[in-house]
Amino acid sequence: MTPGRFVQALQSKRRAAKRRTLILWGGVAVLVVGAAVGTWLLFFSPVFAAQQVSTSGLELLTEEQVAQAAAVPVGEPLLRISTQSAEERVRELAPVDEVDVVRRFPDAIEIIVTERRMQYQRERGGQFEWIDEDGVVFHSTAEPSSGALLARSDTEEQRLLADIATVARHVPGEIRPEVEAIQADAVDQISLLLPEGRTVVWGSAEESELKAQVLEALLEIDATVFDVSAPRHPTTR
């Protein structure tokens, strides 16, 4: 190769390397600008800001109650809204068992609520309290709910209220309509009150499934008291 051609080739390589460098830096610049624009759009612009709040799964609560509790800052970009904080606020509402706050792009927040379910009711102060499987009092009405078991207990102890719920779940279906009340004086003193002065001594909530099975058999016996508190050694009298 002549000296002239060698110089030309070297210059050509340098120009090609310079073009690649310019293209590389140009690409980096585009990415940086794109990332900056994307960040601005998502975190600071009104384009993806919360403009509406919707709710679902409500029966006892109203949309207004849930929206007020969630306190979602309308107009705030979706990604800057703490869904966890909103969930914690909604969860403080007594009827709420579970809640999920979800961002719905481009401009909405959805609050999905699962409300507590009544296992039994209790009359106190002229009101009928609704109590769930965890022993949580979450609602009250002026009239009793048809078909729901009624409990008699003045306790404030959640453990006992939850134990009553366990017993209520296991009351055999064939006598459920006959149960006038579940009497609960302590965690190991739970009874079912039946018509004509008949009583089922349940004891504690432990082994409730077995107690229910034993009780179904005992009900064939003509008796006033059916004691299944020790289900492997039941008695009647």
Rank of each mutant, 00 (worst) to 15 (best):
T2Y: 10
D227R: 07
Y120S: 06
A148H: 05
P73I: 10
V187M: 13
K18L: 15
V136P: 04
D222L: 04
L210T: 11
S82I: 10
M1D: 11
L22C: 08
A212T: 06
V28A: 12
L218F: 05
E206D: 15
Q65P: 02
K13Q: 14
Q84E: 15
A50S: 07
L41Q: 03
A230R: 12
R237H: 14
D100V: 13
L31D: 09
D188I: 09
E59M: 10
A9R: 15
M1Q: 01
L10V: 14
Q127Y: 12
F105D: 10
P195C: 05
D132G: 02
R198Q: 10
D134I: 00
A36W: 06
I190Q: 05
S45E: 00
H170T: 04
L58A: 05
A186L: 09
L58K: 05
V47S: 12
T235C: 11
E92P: 03
V33F: 01
T155S: 10
H233D: 10
L58R: 07
T114P: 03
A151C: 07
E180C: 06
V28D: 04
S54D: 04
I175R: 01
G4C: 00
V214K: 05
I112V: 15
P231D: 05
E220K: 12
G75A: 03
L218Q: 04
G203L: 02
R198G: 02
R117L: 13
S140L: 14
A94F: 04
L93S: 05
S191L: 11
S146P: 10
A94S: 12
A86Q: 03
M1G: 11
Q119Y: 13
G27P: 01
Q84D: 14
L210W: 00
S146A: 15
E76W: 04
Q65M: 11
E207H: 13
A69W: 07
Q213M: 09
F44N: 12
S56R: 04
S56V: 00
T224C: 08
F226E: 00
P95C: 10
V167F: 05
A108N: 12
R104I: 14
A69M: 08
